[in-house]
Amino acid sequence: MSRRMKRMVEEAKELHAIGVMSDTDFNEIKRLAKQAEINDRIAAVKAMSGEEIKALRVRWGMSQSVLAHTLGMSKESVSKWERNEIKPSGPALRILNTLASKGPEVFVS
């Protein structure tokens, strides 16, 4: 949490303690601060070229079919991504980024 956000929560805590701020407003400020903290920690989605997608797949020993299954996509989509015919959507990129950083085990239940 940023220094500014921490200060805002501390000031809200003081105002709440002396009865100037309602429980509802204080809880909303705490909720927004927690949400901002989570948003700051979420990594940006990195675009990936076809070559990068293929290298990622090969790195983890995955076939196009297995990668497609992991993503909930068709094998044809993965093939077109790798040939740079189409680009993966935001949600697919998020999953590809997660696969790149954490490996396929993160998807095993």
Rank of each mutant, 00 (worst) to 15 (best):
K46G: 10
A17T: 10
G90I: 10
S79Q: 10
I86R: 09
R31D: 00
A33K: 03
I95N: 02
S89L: 13
R41E: 13
S22W: 08
M73H: 06
P91D: 13
E28N: 09
K34Q: 09
L32D: 04
S63V: 01
A17R: 15
N84A: 04
L96S: 13
K102G: 00
K80E: 09
H16W: 09
A100K: 08
A68M: 05
L93V: 06
V9A: 10
E37D: 14
K13M: 11
R31T: 02
A47E: 15
I86T: 14
H16Q: 11
S22I: 02
E52A: 15
M21V: 00
M48W: 10
V58R: 11
M48Y: 05
M73A: 07
W81H: 07
L96E: 14
K34R: 12
V66W: 02
A68G: 03
S77A: 14
R7Q: 11
V106K: 08
I53W: 03
N39D: 15
T24V: 05
V45H: 06
N84W: 03
M8G: 08
R83N: 06
L99G: 06
A68S: 05
L71A: 02
R83E: 12
K34V: 07
N27E: 15
I86H: 03
K54T: 12
A33Q: 08
